[in-house]
């Protein structure tokens, strides 16, 4: 349904844009119908940039993103509107998604004015209430209020409800529960999972490995703008192929198993140096070989549907 082909995003920084920051490089993957894919990475991995690229909120540097075969960079404003009818996003900070000086339900009115200008007030408010109920909100409790009068969880549901007003096919969910309280997080997570039953696909962007495991069919592990590993969630988690993924799986604080008794301080100082030619992880990698610092490994299929970018495999 959605495919990314060698997508690259380079930011130009500093005076005259002389400094370059490679946020995402040569990232290719697909999202199929009714599929939940989690995009997992630490800070600076480029995961949010990919989300914004898919939503066409920032321009690509190179590569192509296609939705149902159409190149989204080439879309004119009418096509783009049609794209947004089917592809929507929800972001990390629920409060930042609402213009603080307006009431929260204004985001629904905006959808009405732009996408359903002919729909009557009565029919529309029924549609809105239906969407609110679908995300587990009681309309009278949440309508006609300012954002700061609602909780973070309610606001995130609001944003999901907004997406449901459209003929949505793909939802980009960027860290949408990381700012919510533990006791309400899982409900929003379950809500996303339930959306799949309505025929949606979801790109779930997160830094939290346990969330990715809970919800997704496939997992993509990003490291500094590149895909390190990609495959069915269970296989990526239980039989990781990339040394970076292995390290992540060992370090994530789990509730069923304690950390192994050894201090392995990451050699962060080296990380910056290695970035020139070879694998971006080579500087931190315990299994690094000569070739790793000379040539960047391509993403290869190591077993069916399970891809890894590592010379050792």
């Amino acid at each position: 349904m959605l495919s990314l082909e060698r997508v690259t995003k380079i930011y130009r920084l500093g005076a005259f844009g002389l400094k370059k920051l490679v946020a995402v490089r040569d990232v290719s993957f697909e999202i199929g119908e009714r599929e939940i894919v989690s995009l997992i990475g630490e800070s600076g991995s480029g995961k949010s940039t990919i989300g914004k690229l898919i939503l066409r909120l920032i321009p690509l540097t190179s590569g192509t993103i296609r939705f149902e075969g159409m190149d989204i960079s080439a879309m004119n404003s009418r096509c783009l509107k049609d794209y947004y009818r089917k592809v929507q996003g929800v972001f990390q900070d629920p409060f930042a998604s609402f213009n603080p000086i307006f009431k929260a339900d204004r985001i629904f009115r905006m959808v009405h004015d732009e996408f359903y200008p002919k729909m009557g007030a009565r029919e529309w408010s029924e549609k809105v209430e239906g969407a609110l109920r679908a995300v587990g909100l009681n309309p009278p409790d949440v309508l006609n209020k300012f954002p700061h009068q609602l909780s973070g969880g309610q606001l995130q549901r609001f944003l999901v409800a907004r997406a449901l007003l459209l003929d949505i096919r793909l939802l980009v969910a960027d860290e949408i529960i990381s700012m919510l309280d533990a006791s309400t997080r899982v409900d929003v997570l379950n809500l996303l999972a339930d959306l799949r039953a309505r025929g949606l696909s979801i790109l779930f962007i997160t830094h939290d490995l346990s969330l990715g495991y809970y919800i997704s069919d496939r997992a993509i592990i990003l490291y500094r703008g590149r895909i390190a590993e990609m495959g069915p969630t269970e296989r990526v988690y239980n039989r990781p192929l990339h040394p970076y993924t292995e390290m992540l799986m060992e370090s994530v604080p789990r509730l069923d198993r304690k950390w192994e008794e050894e201090i392995r301080v990451e050699r962060e100082g080296d990380a910056a140096i290695s970035a020139v030619a070879g694998c971006v992880y080579a500087g931190r990698c315990p299994k690094a070989m000569d070739i790793c610092t000379q040539q960047e490994p391509e993403l290869r299929e190591a077993e069916t549907g399970h891809f890894v970018a590592c010379w050792a495999k």
Partner: peptide
């Protein structure tokens, strides 16, 4: 660059 501006853009607002 605020999220609500992005949201408006995703609502097709000019």
């Amino acid at each position: 660059v605020r999220d609500y501006v992005d949201l408006a853009r995703m609502s097709g607002v000019g």
